[in-house]
Design a protein around this nucleic acid. Structure first.
Length: 219
DNA sequence: GTCCAGTTAC
DNA sequence: GTAACCGGAC
């Protein structure tokens, strides 16, 4: 069994099903994917709640709202001026498909998303996978951190190289959704940037970083 | 590498 | 105080 599959099994065993993305509608996934760029999810939740209360978590409504009002509502998520612009850019693209879920799911391509200013590979793939059920693996900073520490990556691979590696091992959409969610959970709870909790890590026996520390502190 | 630029964790 | 946060553009 390959390492990628084994790590999935370990994480699933440790954390259980995550049932991602945490959102009620496809459009909430889209908005959340933009707002969470380099931002703690807790702050994104506040921004989404503000949009929801204002009745703007609906594509046409948000598209027609002036930027200043949107900026005010999404402030808790940070980068507010930038992200209001990015949401508008993205909405303009969705408008080309009449904001229609089924039409978008049929015809919205990755290249189209990447052509939108402010939508990079991770945001595009999050939208494709979690909003429109397309089989793409989402690579984020957490994925890089965990697999670099374990020793599968050397830290110099680019996005598409890492994505290819996962997509060779994982084929079905549900596992792709679950795997990324489990990596996020693991990175937040255990494989943290500062003071990782290696002692309680489900991957420690597979992890180069952990084994290095162990061999150096052994008597 | 730097900017963006709010909120929490440490 | 400052590092970190489900990045992307320049």
């Amino acid at each position: 069994m390959d390492l990628i599959t084994e790590i999935y099994r370990r994480l699933y065993e440790a954390y259980g099903p995550q049932s991602w993305w945490p959102a009620e509608t496809w459009f909430e996934v889209v908005v959340g994917a933009v707002l969470t760029q380099n931002t703690a999810w807790k702050n994104v939740e506040r921004a989404i709640e503000n949009l929801k209360r204002a009745g703007l978590l609906e594509p046409r409504k948000l598209y027609e709202t002036n930027d200043e009002f949107v900026e005010m509502l999404i402030k808790p998520a940070g980068f507010w001026k930038l992200k209001a612009r990015r949401l508008k850019n993205l909405l303009q693209k969705l408008a080309e498909h009449d904001f229609d879920f089924y039409r978008l799911r049929e015809s919205l391509t990755r290249d189209e998303l990447l052509s939108v200013a402010g939508i990079g590979p991770e945001t595009a793939d999050s939208i494709l996978l979690y909003a429109f059920e397309q089989p793409v693996f989402v690579v984020d900073n957490y994925t890089r951190r965990i697999f670099t520490r374990v020793g599968v990556l050397n830290g110099k691979e680019n996005y598409s190289q890492i994505q290819s590696m996962f997509q060779r091992a994982v084929k079905d959409i549900e596992t792709m959704k679950e795997y990324h969610a489990l990596l996020v959970e693991h990175a937040k709870k255990v494989c943290k940037k500062r003071e990782p909790r290696c002692d309680s890590c489900a991957l420690k026996d597979l992890c180069q970083t952990w084994n290095k520390v162990r061999s150096e502190t052994a008597v």
